[in-house]
């Protein structure tokens, strides 16, 4: 018995042929492991990013490869009031929606941080707006904002607060605010759940010490909760800013940039010019003009991370 077992063991050991040895050779294994991810990202992310920047300097249209036209696309954009309106609304949309999302999200996170019954159930249903496809909830908002059959208008009229239907999306400024409202609605859960995770890492002993020192609720928030939450707040905010600034779905689904181009974000304008209008070069130029904003947001994230390491007493590497 023991002899056959030993024989089997020896044979298994000899089985390591060149392929097994190659797969166990570390440099080869590293390359093999990284290859799928790196290849996918190179072909469908890095290359298109470079191609997009190149396209921005050409007059490519759908079905015709363009020639180098230098800064012509950008010069045209500089004189285009619709582009400047999109820049203005992108910045305005991002700023107002971020303030709204983080104000309300932080409040919701603080509420959820109390001892509540059904806590995990509450957390689960609060995340619902965030996991359901944006376009589908946008369609629900489109129906809620309907000029004739808006349920919000109906409630206000029934309560006697208004005489006529509220105009949500048929004129410029109400449409802008309505879109921001929908974006805030969708963003609150993500912010609240992320910040809740941050809140739960704060040690209760800090609050006890502050209570013994006779602090007020506001002081505890201002000098304990907020500074301890700052690192995670900075990261979540960077993500939120990047994805709000480049938002496409909500605007495309609810207003398609209308009325009269007043609610175009840079992404929807790029889509309208580049894909729907066929002017790939011009669309790419509009898309590329978002990059400076994104670089700014990323740097913000980087310095927030560095600050976090410094707070934890690690070296800055």
């Amino acid at each position: 018995m023991s002899a056959t077992a030993a024989e089997g063991w020896i044979r298994k050991n000899q089985e390591q042929n060149w392929l097994t040895r190659l797969l166990d050779w570390k440099p080869f294994l590293v390359v093999m492991c990284l290859l799928p991810a790196v290849a996918l990202l190179m072909v469908f992310l890095t290359y298109p990013l470079g191609l997009g920047i190149w396209l921005a300097f050409t007059d490519t249209t759908i079905g015709r490869s363009g020639v180098w036209v230098g800064l012509e696309n950008f010069e045209f954009m500089m004189e285009d009031p619709i582009f400047w309106n999109a820049v203005f609304y992108s910045v305005f949309y991002t700023a107002v929606a971020t303030v709204g999302k983080f104000g309300l999200g932080l409040w919701l996170a603080l509420l959820l941080n109390n001892h509540l019954p059904f806590k995990s159930f509450l957390r689960a249903i609060i995340l619902l707006p965030w996991i359901v496809p944006t376009v589908l909830t946008a369609i629900a908002f489109w129906w809620i904002y309907n000029p004739q059959f808006s349920i919000i208008s109906w409630v206000f009229i029934e309560l006697g607060l208004r005489d006529s239907n509220i105009d949500f999306i048929n004129t410029a400024w109400p449409a802008r605010w309505s879109l921001i409202g929908a974006n805030v609605w969708r963003g609150i859960p993500f912010v609240a759940i992320s910040l809740l995770a941050g809140l739960q890492t704060i040690s209760p002993s800090l609050y006890e010490a502050a209570l013994l020192d006779g602090s007020t609720g506001w002081q505890r928030f201002r000098y304990i909760t907020f500074p301890m939450l700052l690192p995670i707040l900075a990261i979540v905010m960077t993500f939120s800013i990047i994805f709000t600034f480049t938002d496409f779905q909500l605007v495309y689904a609810i207003t398609r940039g209308g009325p009269v181009n007043s609610t175009h974000l840079l992404a929807t304008l790029a889509f309208q010019r580049g894909i729907a209008g066929g002017q790939l070069g011009e669309g790419a130029a509009i898309a590329v003009s978002m990059i400076p904003f994104l670089v700014f947001a990323t740097l913000f994230s980087y310095f927030a991370l560095a600050r976090r390491k410094w707070q934890q007493g690690e070296s800055n590497d």
Partner: peptide
């Protein structure tokens, strides 16, 4: 680099990706 790739939003990639 992979972390940075996450920060590149689809909105700036869809036009060149369409040509790819």
């Amino acid at each position: 680099a992979i972390y940075l790739a996450y920060l590149v939003p689809p909105s700036i990639l869809f036009i060149p990706l369409a040509t790819v």
